[in-house]
Amino acid sequence: MMILVIAGKELRTLFLSPLAWVILAVVQLILAYLFLSQIDFFLQIQSRLAGLEEAPGITEIIVAPLFGNAAVVLLLVVPMLTMRLVSDERRNRTLSLMFSAPLAMTEIILGKFLGLMAFLLVMLAMIAAMPLALLAGGTLDLGVLASSLLGLLLLLGSFTAIGLFMSTLTSQPTIAAVSTFGVLLLLWILDWAGSGRGGEASTVFGYLSILRHYEPLLKGVFNSADIVYYLLLMLTFLVLSIRRLDAERLLGR
């Protein structure tokens, strides 16, 4: 209940600032451009595809790249949204409002997490609207679309959890944004290490890579290990955030 109160307030404040609107607009603009160029590409090769056996369908050619690109764009955007979650409140000394209210730290952190997730759901709906528009003139593999959406949702959840934790560490939003971006990018490219040689290290890094668990979902492969990976990632960083705020109360810094 209190979680929803905090989440609602976060969502409202987001829309009070121009930042949220600008981000929605810019992301939509870029993804729409990529989406349209992908359609263009599909129209060009359509005649050749007709001749192939087991030709890739419209979903493989348009939806998968769209969601792949969306992930990259959002990797850049989410740190800008998460940066102010806690650090801004710390800088403006408004944290004490929540600390003095009868609230648990868990409620504060989950409220902030869900508030931003609600905003990202709006973004997700806008992204999903683009491929869904193709239903007007063709058919889509809705299963693949659903698993892609799920993948992007989990990815965004992980981004948000990591960004939220980084935001609890500092009172400077910019530092939170840069460090979040650094961590996300590192997780993204982690599997590049030793990818040429194979071996033990590359398997571990590959397993930790955030991208490796996203790609199967874009192809419509639903592997519960991938889901669990994202859920664990979110849980870890949410727990770390709660611990961090608790430490602030205990240590006073």
Binding site: V5, L16, L103
Partner: peptide, 18 residues
């Protein structure tokens, strides 16, 4: 601990909920 971007009414309503 004030949220400068809220109105007085919105802020106090939020405090009441908290």
């Amino acid at each position: 601990p004030l949220y400068r971007e809220l109105t007085v009414d919105e802020y106090l309503a939020y405090c009441a909920r908290l």
